[in-house]
Amino acid sequence: MTVSHHLERFHELPIHDFAPDAAPDAASTEAPAARPRPAADTVAWRLSVDWDTKQDFDHVWRSFLRSVDPAEVRALVIGPWWDHRGYVSVRATMETITAAADRLPALEALFLGDVTFDECEISWMEMDDVTPLLTALPQLTSLAVRGGMDLALQPVRHERLRALRFESGGLPATVVRAVSGSELPALERLELWLGVDEYGGDTTLDDLAPFLDGSRLPKLRHLGLQNSEFQDEIAAALAHAPVVARLESLGLSMGVLSDEGATALLEGQPLTHLRALDLHHHYLTEEMQQRLRQALPGVELDLSEAEDAGEDDEDRYVAVAE
């Protein structure tokens, strides 16, 4: 599996692709014609660079601020930010957004990197330290970041953030440690796509321990530790982790979960209180899938994308790597 589709919804809002005004002809004094657009607070605005127009992100952003009332914008989705001249660092794009922070008082949700594999492979997207997004936007309740190369985060305190997601084919352990070292008293949803070592995913089970005891994130209700090569070990650790008792949903999808990990889950603490358990993209046998269905009759159980378990562990792969 690769990331092959753009988001259709974000922050419980439909995505609307922002179409920037064409750059005025230098020889013309006429302003470009206005285009009908939805009310600023009714959609999640997707901003991206159309390489065919030879515009850059600065032009897209300036056009956005002119065309939409930024004070009413609730959600932003950033697609490809590089232009026809080639790939550029995301730092300048983040600086452009944070420089306008005072004009975005209603902004609650930001998705950085809504990019599909045909635009750039997830592990080839050059990221940067995303801490400034949190420090400059204290009103954010949701932050999602896609991409892993050079991704960084510093431990931070953020009072309002309720959802945090890192999508990566190889999530650096330094980012995981920074999340666990942060003070996020309002956080309810945490999703980490851990990925593989080949693309920088060097997180270990020890790095995940602070999330398992539940003490750092008092309001956590959903935990997703996904897309991992050591999914069985994560499942075994969660089988006795204190945090599970207060979760409403749990995500162990996209990795190489086998019967070994599923057995540990079933033999551990009760999971019947969960509303949902996401195990999609797995290596469970039909017998184990049936055991799970029988043991968790009231749980919304996602067992889709069953892969061939085979006999060789080396033939098993995570859903998103390169």
Rank of each mutant, 00 (worst) to 15 (best):
S142M: 15
R146N: 09
V176Y: 11
L137S: 00
M127F: 08
L151K: 00
V130P: 00
D150I: 09
L153R: 02
G148N: 14
D150E: 15
L134E: 02
R157F: 10
P172A: 12
R160S: 02
P172I: 13
L133T: 06
Q154H: 13
L137F: 15
L134F: 12
E167M: 07
L137E: 01
G147P: 03
P155F: 15
G148D: 11
L153S: 02
T135Y: 11
L143S: 00
V145S: 00
G169S: 06
P132I: 07
T174E: 15
E126P: 13
V179E: 05
P138V: 11
L171F: 11
L133H: 10
Q154G: 02
P138D: 10
T141K: 15
L161K: 00
A136S: 15
A163N: 04
R157E: 14
V176M: 13
R165Q: 13
G148K: 00
S142N: 11
R165E: 12
V175C: 11
V179L: 08
V175A: 09
L171D: 11
A178C: 14
R157S: 09
M127T: 05
G148R: 01
T131A: 05
L164N: 00
R177P: 02
V176L: 12
M149K: 14
T141D: 05
S142C: 13
R177V: 13
V156A: 03
S168E: 04
L171A: 10
R177F: 15
R160W: 03
M149Y: 12
L161T: 03
R157V: 06
L140P: 01
L133Y: 12
L171S: 06
H158R: 05
V179N: 02
A178T: 06
R157C: 05
P132E: 03
E126I: 10
V175M: 09
L161A: 01
E126V: 13
L153T: 01
T141L: 12
L164C: 03
D128A: 08
Q154T: 14
P138H: 11
P132K: 02
G147A: 07
E126H: 14
S168P: 01
G169K: 05
L143I: 04
Q154R: 15
G169L: 09
Q154P: 04
A136G: 06
V145P: 03
T174V: 15
L140Q: 00
T131F: 12
R160I: 05
R162L: 04
A152I: 10
V175N: 07
G148V: 03
G169M: 11
V176Q: 06
T135A: 11
G169T: 03
R162T: 07
M149I: 09
V145M: 02
Q139S: 03
G148W: 01
P155V: 07
T135I: 15
A173N: 14
E159S: 04
V175T: 09
L161S: 01
